[in-house]
Nucleic acid binder design. Sequence first.
DNA 1: AACGATATAGTCATATCGGACTATTCATCA
DNA 2: TGATGAATAGTCCGATATGACTATATCGTT
Lengths: 214, 214
Amino acid sequence: MDANEVLLLGLLGQEEMHGYKLHEFLEHELNFVSDLKRPTAYRLLEQLLHRQLVERATEREGRRPERMVYRLTAAGQARFETLLREQLADAERVIHAGNVALLFSDRLPPDERRRLLARRRDGVAAQREVLLSIVEAHAPGSTVRLALQHDLAHLDVELGWLTRTIEGLKGECSTSGVITLVAHDPPRRTSSPGAGSAIASGGSKANAVHFSRV
Amino acid sequence: MDANEVLLLGLLGQEEMHGYKLHEFLEHELNFVSDLKRPTAYRLLEQLLHRQLVERATEREGRRPERMVYRLTAAGQARFETLLREQLADAERVIHAGNVALLFSDRLPPDERRRLLARRRDGVAAQREVLLSIVEAHAPGSTVRLALQHDLAHLDVELGWLTRTIEGLKGECSTSGVITLVAHDPPRRTSSPGAGSAIASGGSKANAVHFSRV
DNA sequence: AACGATATAGTCATATCGGACTATTCATCA
DNA sequence: TGATGAATAGTCCGATATGACTATATCGTT
């Protein structure tokens, strides 16, 4: 993804670095912001090098083995700024993988459904706990803290939403369980004058699929 | 990802379907839940077939060309339930790609930073708008609605957070701009008795990297 | 003197994903 | 009758990501 590119360019713009340290840094300091893996980082560095957005020199510190130090070039700086502007303004489309399970959650008996969701909530709570302590270790006003607080806000809703949902599922034993997906945006371009109620899709092709419990 | 697998198994468990319709359905009804692409769906179907989690028959409806209809097998149903339980209880680790840009946002002049973030907010607001109308088209209590409301909740925080952040950035002209990443979790296993303040990391290796503005 | 940990730098095979392209049959309408 | 479009089913190639593996030099400890 492009985010990786800005990330590396940005970090190198900050301070020249060698690959290993770069990755250490990501893993230890920014693991809530990025999960860039080491081989990926190396490959990306190589590619940036090839595009002349960074340059590489060898240096040695003390009597440790040689290291390759990467430094941002002018072109790299320019590219960085472009990408940064793009991505700062971009409202990323987030897909929550967890929704899929939610979608089918009514195929399980209600109590198990609640139990599993409670487990999910505990996991989120644990994440929140960790993140909270990390946030507090960062100076207020720092951009890192900003990003972490952003994540925290999301963990908070997630937690609240899960709690409310689980709560709302109590007092459920065996609901009628036939659920319908309606076509909110009828994609049939062929003669569909029914711009009225989205529910009454009495077309020829049933574009409503029924979700029933097992 | 595994979510795709449950998704297909779940949909097929619902009702046997042919690949094209499956994809249509995903694209038109579930595009907020999944962005599974068509080639990916076909490939996955093939793989499920090979693992005998689904079976395939050819049928024809009216005088349309032949179609391959996929149906869940018993093994498929079992696999589905296993995966469902796993994923329902799993607290997925979400990485927000947008955070990276945030991290470096102080490399831009404050007013531009605000302007770009405002643009991001508008994008999110637009997404929210769309999602809201979709949510309303679904019966209350349906699992689809549940999932969509989950997304909505996240869009809501995102919106609120962006608004607050932008607001908080007003009255900023050219702050000092030296920001420090502190090591919240000192990874050096070598003699690090400093369990006290995480800030005063006066170790030999500077594990604090300075973020300064350009 | 030997050994294990650590710092550093990779490589490679494999898997996944998705944009773009192709192919076939039928329906419809000029 | 010929063209167009849409329903249906793929395929293929290139990009990307990553787990696992390798290699080497140095340092600290026993």
